[in-house]
């Protein structure tokens, strides 16, 4: 069972206090988008063995959404950060690269 530190309130919350929200940094496609764009937005999800960015809500806590960068294979957590961003902040990118030098980036 994972522990993730909520960047909003500082609690090291265990998984039962959190609600998962799937892949992070999706770009929303609404009316006017092509079928392909909408399909990707709705359904095409990464399923990497390795570095992954995913949304979590501190549901039994401060109620805020945050994003965790972690390794899906080893469950190593590289960092967490508030969800109010379209891309991972630099210090998270750096933290991932330190631990996974061969990592190709989050896109």
């Amino acid at each position: 069972m994972l522990i993730l530190e909520c960047p909003h309130c500082g609690i090291r919350a265990e998984e039962t206090e959190l609600a998962p929200g799937g892949e992070a940094h999706l770009k929303r496609f609404g009316p006017g988008s092509s079928d392909q764009e909408f399909e990707d937005y709705m359904f095409a999800r990464k399923n990497p063995k390795g570095v992954h960015f995913e949304r979590w809500r501190h549901a039994y806590g401060c109620g805020k959404w945050f994003i965790a960068a972690r390794c899906t294979a080893t469950l190593e957590v590289f960092g967490t950060y508030p969800a109010q961003t379209a891309a991972p902040p630099q210090h998270i990118i750096d933290a991932v690269k330190t631990r996974r030098p061969g990592w190709e980036g989050y896109k």
Partner: peptide, 13 residues
């Protein structure tokens, strides 16, 4: 309520 907060926090913050 969670649905509302999701959109307010993660899309239209």
């Amino acid at each position: 309520h969670a649905w509302m907060e999701d959109w307010l926090q993660c899309e239209w913050w």
